[in-house]
Design a protein around this nucleic acid. Structure first.
Lengths: 338, 338
DNA sequence: TTGAAAGCGATACCAC
DNA sequence: GTGGTATCGCTTTCAA
């Protein structure tokens, strides 16, 4: 058998007091003498006692300090940053994140929700607005605080922080059309289910339609949305013979990859081809050009999601939806209207 | 009070059987009739019963399925990838990661360890080989599997997966010296405590000494090791008037930032100045040049850490230290020996 | 200021 | 096949 852990009862016995007294001392609840406190704490140190919080939660019929946080992947730096924002905030208030990587699959999310709920978390933060019916039901039944982030949703399960991805794609499409482009392309990565990137593409497509342009090609790579997929995706697109005038990428990293491929092929940006990204990611900050993109407050999303969660846990009244918005960055990688 | 959760007892009562029978059905333990099974499962579905695993662990004096995973930060994409590698593997075997972001501070790690241990995890995976004395003691006393990753350590607390960062820095220093460089610089970010990057710098410094060269300047920025800090760090370095012939950066992202700054200033790489990175990160794959760097198997580190953890949890015998090694990439951003 | 007893939700163990 | 009872480590409640 394992190192049997030191229990409160042993500490109490060693200190010559009852379990209850030891318990009170440890929680600093008051109702004990200084002498007792000293004795108990001495034994705690001597025995290396660590409380079993499972028992605490169990006895008090409380929740744990865990907050389940599910995001699609960490290969995408935006999500990594969102997670970091969330965790820092949660930790500052005594909570811990239990990670769930869904890989963009709703079934994975459902499975994860079931598991996490069985551990009595204080709440759940999930990415996206679509979930399986069973996931929705479990979330509802739990009665726990739930924050849906990333994709803004005016009628969330419980709370929501994000932005309207459709609108952001639409804005980009309209901006490009306004600048005279007629033949559009899109390069992104594929997913098992509809997600925020799909919404962006839908908005982009709609804007193109509304402006009377044509989306001549859209590429959905089976890969993570990184630098290299942007590079070889562009290679594929250009090799396909379609004559796109401008390419909108799923994010800035892909766009920078595409830019480098164009440069390598001797194409001039924006004279020969226009390039637009999404997210205003760090890589954009060191380029000699200013990438046309959509700026999004990633860190804020994570922070605010955590804040909503914490105030709900604390039982405070509060607004339950936050649209953090986005901002179009004109940049120098697309042509300006004459 | 909250939505009181449905308990096993209620399911049993509704199904007209005892708790024990319901429990056996749910665990598919055998020893019940098909008719009983059907009745119980029907009630489980109808009532939306979710087990309280806290009680299970508690009753069986087991551990939870949680594995604590602590890493310095997620802003650094290497660590994000390591975490992703770990979590995917753990999830496949029914475990969940409880995140700990230490921000490179040992005190944060210690605090996190204490908290996580109180939740009876199945094991802990931590980054780095140095911990506070109390952290070491808690880890030891827990009797739990512990994997220390990133920095290889032939005498770990328990298990270890990583590489020798000192040696990797030394290799780079020696390589550069061999290629004729005499005046070296380093740009990285500062931390509260010694870590892997410090070891790299120490190895680099030693190699320079051994080769009779000079480390004329080292910059430790108070920032995350990303593109832009590489850019402005290089600006600072060059503005300082020191005439470095080659700059070694904490990682590739910083190096690419530095490269862009040099280009902007009209400096030619490697003719005017040499540039070397570390990590062989994704950004390097799309550049028109091949960045001189050190290639490290990030994903493998995460995976192997999780594998060691899982086999220890399963009680299998196993080697407990793994040196995953590194590989120097000569690249085109430093001058070759004549 | 202290302590004894009940109980949280599940499982282990032993009767039936 | 099935069910009663003790039990895990701690807190709640009530009494002293």
């Amino acid at each position: 058998m394992k190192n049997k852990q030191v229990s409160l009862a042993e500490v109490a016995r060693a200190a010559g007091v009852s379990k209850m007294t030891a318990s009170r001392v440890l929680r600093d609840e008051g109702g004990f003498s200084e002498k007792t406190r000293t004795k108990v704490m001495a034994e705690v140190d001597r025995l290396g006692y660590l409380p079993n919080r499972l028992a605490t939660v169990f006895a008090g019929d409380q929740k744990t300090t865990f907050v389940g946080v599910s995001i699609p992947e960490l290969g995408n730096e935006i999500f990594a940053q969102v997670l970091e924002g969330i965790d820092r905030k949660l930790v500052a208030f005594g909570h811990q994140s239990v990670l769930g990587l869904t890989e963009h699959a709703l079934e994975n999310e459902e499975k994860w929700i079931e598991t996490v709920l069985s551990w009595q978390p204080a709440g759940l933060i999930v990415t996206g607005r679509s979930h399986t019916p069973r996931a929705v039901q479990m979330l509802r039944n739990s009665g726990l605080p739930v924050v849906e982030l990333w994709d803004f949703n005016s009628a969330p399960l419980d709370m929501c922080v994000g932005l309207n991805h459709f609108d952001s794609g639409y804005s980009m499409g309209r901006y490009l059309a306004t600048n005279g482009y007629r033949k559009f392309a899109y390069i992104g990565t594929s997913h098992h289910s509809a997600n925020a990137a799909s919404s962006r593409l839908a908005g982009y497509t709609k804007a193109i339609e509304d402006a009377g342009g044509t989306l001549i090609k859209q590429l959905q790579l089976r890969d993570a949305p990184g630098f290299y997929p942007g590079y070889y995706g562009t290679e594929q697109l250009l090799a396909s013979g379609e004559e796109a005038e401008v390419i909108f990428y799923q994010n800035d990293n892909m766009a920078v990859g595409g830019y480098e491929y164009c440069k390598k092929k001797g194409l001039s940006v924006p004279d020969d081809i226009g390039i637009a990204g999404w997210g205003d990611l760090p890589i954009a900050s060191i380029q000699p050009y200013r990438l046309t993109s959509i700026s999004v407050p990633h860190l804020k999303i994570g922070q605010q999601a955590a804040e909503l969660m914490l105030s709900r846990i604390a039982g405070q009244p509060m607004v339950s939806t936050k649209d953090v918005g986005f901002r179009l960055i004109p940049g120098t990688t697309v042509q300006k209207a004459p």
